[in-house]
């Protein structure tokens, strides 16, 4: 397991409020990692920084074997390097069919001209079917994404993430609003994905995290409070203080 992403000494200030404070965190490949923390701990801002949406005031974000400095790249370039992101709120393109949503995410050329002349090959179609199978949407391929249930939208989004074939998946609260059965399905999906790549899951729900059976990083006030197995961090006095209040 080699280090895939290394964030070191990163800080961000919004109008005097320090959202991220000298944060350092690293993830290897393959690895499944859960990130927890109370509201305002900086979890989403951390993802924004890694994916290029927010530029930090200081610090470094280093990617891959060739140690690329991600801060110099735009969102789309970072995505193309192999970082996929799932948002907290499911954001699929509700106007379009499940098939088109997946087709858009497929790891093909992204330039306007190649997209213009793109027509699905048999391999592409097979890949779409396979992904739909994986996330359990095989029979809904030609439905509009807008009419899917909440949980199905989450899966479609995970399916789109997998279609991108990223090396690092950033997943923001995948289980929010899901039924227990859907959660189980989601856990399986993530664990399977993490066999070949790095997956970082942000989640509030301890039960969900316990089932992921992975290393946990606790964020608090924009910095890492504790890191280790779930049992380890839940025994940490500081973590208990933060979560339960003093």
């Amino acid at each position: 397991m080699s280090t895939l992403l290394e964030v070191s000494g990163v800080s961000v200030t919004f109008d005097g409020f320090r959202a991220i404070n000298n944060l350092s965190i690293a993830i290897g490949e393959p690895e499944l990692r859960a990130v927890i923390g109370p509201n305002g701990a900086g979890k989403t801002t951390f993802m924004d920084i890694v994916t290029g949406k927010t530029k930090p005031d200081e610090g470094r974000v280093i990617w891959g074997e060739r140690s690329v400095n991600l801060l110099k790249y735009s969102e789309s370039q970072i995505a193309k390097m192999g970082i996929g992101r799932k948002f907290q709120k499911p954001t699929v393109f509700e106007d379009q069919s499940v098939r088109d949503n997946l087709a858009m995410a497929l790891a093909n050329k992204r330039g306007p001209f190649s997209v213009l002349v793109w027509r699905a090959t048999d391999r592409d179609r097979a890949r779409i079917e396979e992904l739909a199978e994986e996330v359990g949407l095989s029979d809904r391929l030609d439905d509009s994404a807008g009419i899917l249930s909440h949980g199905q939208k989450q899966w479609l989004e995970i399916g789109m993430l997998l279609a991108q074939d990223p090396r690092l998946l950033l997943v923001d609260e995948p289980a929010a609003g899901m039924t227990p059965a859907e959660r189980e399905h989601t856990t399986d999906l993530l664990k399977r994905a993490a066999r070949t790549r790095a997956v970082m899951v942000i989640e509030h729900d301890m039960e969900f995290i316990r089932r992921l059976e992975c290393r946990v990083t606790v964020l608090h006030e924009g910095a890492v409070l504790a890191e280790g197995s779930l049992d380890h961090v839940t025994k940490n006095q500081q973590v208990i203080d933060v979560y339960l209040g003093r």
Binding site: S76, A79, F93, A103, A105, R110, Q164
Partner: peptide, 25 residues
């Protein structure tokens, strides 16, 4: 009608998401 249309309609509906899919919006 093609994937291009798909992408630009996606840009119309949620430009940020399209960016995270790796498209140069």
């Amino acid at each position: 009608s093609g994937k291009f249309g798909s992408v630009i309609r996606a840009i119309r509906d949620n430009e940020a998401r399209v960016r995270f899919l790796g498209y140069n919006v």
